[in-house]
Amino acid sequence: MSEGKDIPLVGGKSFTAVAINCAAKAGEWIKTKLGNHTSLSIKYSAQDLVTEVDKGAETMIRNLVGTHFPHHSFLGEEGVEPGPEASAKALQSVQDAEYLWIVDPVDGTTNFVHGFPFFSVSIALAYQGEVIVGVVYDPMRDELFVAEKGKGAYVRGRRMAVSGEAALRDSLLASGFPADPNYAQPLNMKQLQAIAPQVRNVRSVGSAALHMAYVASGRVSGFWEVGLNAWDLAAGALLVKESGGKVTDMQGNDYHLGVRHVAATNGRIHDELLQALQQAETAGT
């Protein structure tokens, strides 16, 4: 990563170092709980789950951040009521914060519950609404993805770059199956049905933050999903941008913390993917 003098600091403390420390400590604790959680609750839908591990990891991260930066604001998934309206309201309540930590303690809770080893800790720091630090940690593979605004993005200490595919037909894409059964999931499935024949293949492994990290590291050419939240996307969006990729909403507007329907690509296939998504959305209407 960048030299210490280039890492964002406040009061002599590195934002990035704190984010990495929080992600690593939470991730290692989560890993010890795999197959060992004792509570399971349904939030917004039968596909939207939470365990005591999600809550415990978020509390751990919140406390660690608060120790270093007690005056910073904090937006964590488990501190927000379920559903898109509550998510939008929670983001609006902190959008004017100078420094805002945005955290998904276990991105991929359903995977975690079933013992499917694909989940992550996602931590971002926004300054005046713009993400300046993004960390995604995969504890099962001990892979740490780190980005600093203007400094590049790294995995295992190596600088990342997006893939080179220039056309959808040559691309491996990723998407998800949203927890909202009324709007987001049907639309995402409609898009999937339209896009799958146009690409090399599509993967869906249940963690938006890791999907974004995989776009940044060139493992997939692009990712799209409907109905996500700031804590799903903020860290990953910076990873993609700092790796040379592009992140927008599905109309092509630049990513910001309020984006819920996202497209992230290597940049080369972005316009073609957006066109395919928009055609799928309007087909049959």
Rank of each mutant, 00 (worst) to 15 (best):
G12W: 12
P105L: 04
L49F: 13
K55D: 02
E143M: 04
R62Q: 14
D271T: 02
V205C: 01
E3N: 11
A237I: 08
Q251G: 11
S45G: 06
V10D: 11
N21L: 11
I132T: 10
R159S: 08
G150P: 11
K5G: 01
A283V: 10
G79W: 05
G35A: 04
A126D: 02
T282Y: 07
V146Q: 02
R203H: 08
L172P: 00
L239F: 13
I30M: 09
T67V: 03
A263H: 05
L100A: 03
K151W: 01
L210T: 05
V136S: 03
T248A: 05
A264D: 09
V262G: 02
I102F: 10
I269H: 01
I20T: 03
S14A: 14
N201F: 09
A126M: 10
Q275F: 09
I20G: 01
K151R: 14
T32K: 15
S2A: 15
G108R: 04
G150I: 07
G134V: 07
S73D: 15
D54M: 02
A179P: 00
D254T: 07
Y183R: 13
P117I: 03
R268Y: 06
A280V: 07
A234M: 09
H68K: 07
A124L: 05
P84L: 08
V65G: 01
I7F: 06
Q191V: 02
V215I: 06
K246A: 07
I7H: 10
D6P: 00
D180M: 08
A17Y: 13
S87K: 04
L168T: 01
F118V: 10
G245S: 12
H256I: 03
E165C: 11
F118P: 00
D54R: 02
A19T: 04
A230M: 05
D170L: 10
G134S: 11
A167H: 15
G245N: 05
N229F: 09
E272Q: 15
A263L: 09
G56Q: 10
L34E: 12
N63K: 14
S93M: 08
K89M: 10
P181C: 10
V155N: 11
D104Y: 11
R219L: 14
V53R: 01
E77N: 08
R141Q: 14
V121C: 08
A263P: 06
A264C: 12
L274H: 07
